[in-house]
């Protein structure tokens, strides 16, 4: 996926810390506001507050602060190793973090009283490598968590799964096993599996980067449709076409920090950090 728009010439020399309030449109070296103004009025569905994480001595996340409001689509991008996948996995506590707090729909992630399985069941997640369960049929994949976590009956779970399969265009494959589907089909099933839990928010961790190029489109189409229906989404991806089409905001991360957190129009119009500009020029230039 490429874009015809070239990045503007570099103007902002320094990376900025998010969080401090400032006029969001200032082109030079201005600290960025958290959520963009358009979305700021909404209810935060995900609030990430000063999150830091270390692997031993190595710091992978540094004071990350941002939020995603209800109905918003936020794209997280950045070079590999920038911590974007780690950050998104912190949201449903797949990765533990040592400092800060994340609140999902009013529930604190780091809190002994939080029932994590229950919280996770309301946060849908789609992985880079699909992670369908290879020993279960597509129907089995769709109904396992519905039955074991939500306590739905077999018929209800299978009906729900079927409806979602139809939505992602794979109803005919219900009886097959993951290994019999193409990568793009598997990822669409994985999206349906997450949706079957009636999530309040969906997390996507590089959902198209393990796919052959000709299969990227079919997965993105499902995601675009989902975004247009008003699903709250946090998406780690390099697909800038997708970002342009449906994102409300774009977060740029580098070396464990949120360097830029801006409205889509501002991010693509005039990214203020040099690092973001370099990144954009690299991924848009081919």
């Amino acid at each position: 996926m490429t874009s015809s728009a070239m990045p503007p010439p570099a103007t902002a020399p320094e990376p900025q810390r998010p969080g401090a309030g400032a006029p969001p449109s200032s082109p030079v070296a201005a600290p960025l506001a958290g959520p963009a103004p358009a979305a700021a009025a909404g209810v935060p569905m995900i609030a990430i507050d000063q999150v830091s994480k270390w692997y031993g001595d190595f710091q992978v996340l540094t004071n990350c602060t941002t939020s995603v409001v209800k109905g918003e689509v936020v794209v997280v991008c950045g070079p590999s190793g920038s911590g974007k996948s780690t950050l998104i996995k912190c949201v449903n506590a797949l990765e533990p973090f040592q400092k800060g707090q994340i609140t999902v729909d009013g529930t604190k992630v780091v809190d002994r009283r939080t029932n994590l399985p229950q919280l996770r069941s309301r946060v849908g997640m789609v992985f880079q490598h699909f992670e369908l369960f290879p020993h279960l049929s597509i129907t089995g994949n769709l109904s396992l968590a519905q039955r074991k976590v939500l306590g739905r009956g077999r018929e209800e779970a299978e009906a729900k799964g079927m409806a979602l399969l139809e939505r992602v265009g794979l109803k005919a494959h219900a009886h097959k096993f993951p290994g019999q589907l193409s990568g793009g089909q598997q990822q669409r099933v994985a999206i349906a599996r997450a949706l079957a839990m009636n999530p309040v928010v969906m997390l996507f961790d590089e959902p198209t980067s393990a796919l052959d190029p000709e299969m990227v489109g079919e997965v993105l189409d499902v995601m675009v449709e989902l975004a247009r229906e008003g699903m709250t989404m946090m998406v780690v991806t390099h697909e800038m076409g997708f970002a342009r089409k449906v994102a409300n905001r774009v977060i740029f991360m580098d070396r464990g920090e949120i360097v830029e957190d801006a409205r889509k129009e501002d991010f693509f119009g005039s990214p203020r950090s040099e690092r973001a500009q370099t990144f954009l020029s690299k991924i848009l230039s081919h």
Binding site: L94, P117, M125, F127, F133, L150, R193, A194
Partner: peptide
């Protein structure tokens, strides 16, 4: 990722 996928779906 298999363990993560199970966990992410809310399985204990």
């Amino acid at each position: 990722g298999q363990r993560m996928a199970g966990t992410a779906l809310g399985l204990t």
